[in-house]
Design a protein around this nucleic acid. Structure first.
Lengths: 247, 247
DNA sequence: AAGTGGTCTAGACCACGTT
DNA sequence: ACGTGGTCTAGACCACTTG
């Protein structure tokens, strides 16, 4: 079952206050935040809690800490919204990219699962899967073409047309016995096939990004496979990488 | 100046011991690690230190924690070595992909910087840059074609041919006034041009992944631009993504 | 020398999932 | 009810950068 209620931890409250202060440009003198000690006093919390809040902001590339110096606000222009390692859903992604998101259609069908996918999803060959096809649009133009394969054995109830959520995470919450705990994505350059060219409104042989995603439950069992084509005229993925020293 | 010496924190020692135990399959009964409390007692450290060690292992997708349940070893087959958000250097990346890495050549030249890059690197138009071109091989076949642009004003000393490090991070450490603090990478699908096709030994119009990287120093100043072509027959990038709930 | 973030301790209580 | 990881405290000292 999906637990919807969860108390908001203290550090998340602190995070929100700091984030608002950043966004309203409050302590933006030189983009330097007050020291952790001061923040702790100000918020009447321990330094560990402040550090927890700052850590979560650093993960999102909002701030950057430097040992012996201080905590800096990362300039807007090097913030990244289309981080491929932070994708939550394509609808939101298109919005973040500055386009008006919409969904053209949702096709739902049942069919035998391709042999390659039955291996990846660890289900018997020639077993059945629910197949969902959708095209996400940005400003009315095709941005993302998506095809999801859910083996019928991984379904806990049968979705009706019209009640399919935008995001695969919500889909699993509603219609699968387990939620998706993590996802592994492979990035593949390719050129558009005839069918994709048609769906995306692109010339044949146009280069395009293909993503193959496998969604796992908490016991590391693969649940769902997604095949995704991304129109690079609308969506450009980025990666943020900090220097790491140790192994 | 680059500080080479740094004391190894306690939690890194703990991390190493846990990692070795995982790799030697020691506490692999059901892939469940002992509780944090027990680990703390065993290593004679505080629970916070154990948590710090476990956190770093979780970041690397070695373990996965689940609130109320325990800490699990992630199965080998869903470990990822070619995480695009964790790339340290291409030489190592090729090795991680299971190929014998080598470097074909390093071309070094000075030339005017292209207008587009002068904007990205925030230097005056028509200023000069050091240009480094290299091809990384895997098992003798071209795997990665790399072209780096370093504005001459961002150099602190002049590299001699033969003393150019494999990694751009080490290059900046040696020949630039600042080290690279973080990198933003854009992922672009494209097809090979004539020159790249030649360098990579690929047919014309073959789809290929292009990466455009901008390397920043600690003051968010762009220092170096890299243009990278990745042969997807040898290197396949992956992304690891866990479910996140809050904003 | 001063001030910052990084590490570490020894406790305590809470939230979550299982039994 | 129990055991797990998650959060939080109040302190201490260390490592790094800068003046």
């Amino acid at each position: 079952m999906v637990s919807a209620i969860q108390r908001d931890p203290l550090f998340m409250k602190v995070r929100r206050v700091i984030l608002e202060a950043i966004q309203s440009g409050q302590f933006a003198q030189g983009n330097l935040l007050p020291p952790e000690k001061i923040l702790a006093q100000e918020f009447q919390v321990s330094r560990a809690t402040v550090r927890n809040a700052l850590q979560s902001l650093e993960d999102d590339n909002i701030i950057r800490k430097q040992h012996g110096v201080g905590t800096f606000v990362v300039p807007e222009n090097s913030r990244l919204k289309m981080r491929i390692d932070k994708v939550k859903g394509f609808y939101q992604l298109i919005g973040d990219s500055g386009y008006e998101p919409s969904i053209r259609k949702t096709e739902m069908s049942r069919d035998l699962i391709p042999d390659r996918l039955s291996e990846i999803l660890e289900v018997p060959r020639r077993s059945e899967a629910l197949i969902l096809k959708r095209t996400f649009m940005g400003d009315g133009k095709p941005a993302i073409d998506l095809c999801e394969y859910i083996p019928v054995n991984n379904l806990s109830s049968e979705p009706q047309p019209g009640e399919v959520p935008d995001s695969v995470f919500e889909f699993a919450d509603k219609f699968c016995p387990d939620r998706i705990e993590y996802t592994i994505t492979e990035i593949i350059p390719t050129t558009v096939s005839i069918s994709v060219a048609e769906a995306m409104g692109l010339p044949r042989n146009h280069p395009i990004l293909k993503l193959e995603e496998v969604h796992f439950n908490r016991t590391d069992k693969p649940m769902i496979f997604s095949e995704i084509y991304v129109n690079d005229r609308i969506i450009r993925f980025t990666v943020f990488r900090t220097r790491v020293s140790f192994i």
